[in-house]
Amino acid sequence: MSMKLKIKSFFGPSRQYAVTGASNNPSKFGFKILSWYISHDLPVVPVNPKETEILGQQVIPNVTKIISSIQDHSKVGSHDFSSTDGLSISFLTPPHITEATLREIAGISGYQQIIKGLWFQPGSYDQAVLETAESIGLFDKVVYEDECILIRGEEGLVSANL
């Protein structure tokens, strides 16, 4: 699948988004990218085990809790996943954390139906991360190659008719 198609399929009308490595520090991309989702009125969950709230959004400590709640069509705090068709995740974590997160995701039964897109921001991945995405069957949903959602996100929203 071309990168353009992967970017398009990252977005969807009933999609839930998550930002792993979301940050309260305005100089960090974890803050800027979370801001991008909020400014586009997209339902986004910041993921960070050390924070409780970022940009007025309740923080969830890990992605697995979001996936389980989407499967159950339930809520986690202020986030309602009752009508969500799946999850697209922006990664802003160091590669070893990104890889560990992928392994956690793979431990959830049915994860391949829930995960709709993985956007590895520059600096969040290395060869081991790409190999892990391949080994768990999600590589065809990965946006990488130094693609940044702040640059290509608008195109993805337009191509997905959002």
Rank of each mutant, 00 (worst) to 15 (best):
A100T: 06
T93K: 09
T84K: 06
P13F: 10
T93F: 10
V129W: 01
K75P: 06
S90T: 14
A22D: 00
V143P: 06
K141E: 05
V76K: 11
I151K: 14
D41A: 09
I115Q: 00
M3A: 06
V158Q: 04
T101A: 07
T64N: 15
A133Y: 03
I70K: 11
I136N: 13
S78E: 15
F10M: 05
E53A: 08
K32Q: 09
S109R: 15
A133F: 02
S14D: 11
W36P: 02
T52W: 01
E131N: 08
Q16P: 07
E51C: 12
A160S: 15
E154Q: 10
I115G: 12
F91D: 00
Q121N: 07
K28G: 02
S74P: 09
S14V: 04
S9L: 08
I54M: 08
G156H: 10
D41H: 13
V76I: 14
E145L: 12
T93L: 13
K50Q: 11
S124G: 04
E145D: 12
A18D: 07
I66Y: 09
Q113H: 07
M1T: 09
K28L: 00
F29K: 01
F10S: 09
K6F: 06
K116Y: 02
S68C: 10
K116L: 01
A22S: 09
M3P: 08
C148E: 06
L157F: 12
S69F: 01
G117D: 04
G21A: 03
V143T: 08
D80P: 08
H96C: 12
N25L: 01
E145M: 11
S124H: 02
K8L: 11
G117Y: 02
Q57R: 14
D140P: 04
N25S: 08
G86I: 01
I136D: 13
H79Q: 11
E147K: 13
H73P: 07
K65G: 05
E53C: 10
S35T: 14
P49A: 03
E134C: 01
D72G: 04
P46K: 11
T84Q: 09
Q58D: 10
T93W: 05
I54L: 11
H73V: 04
C148Y: 05
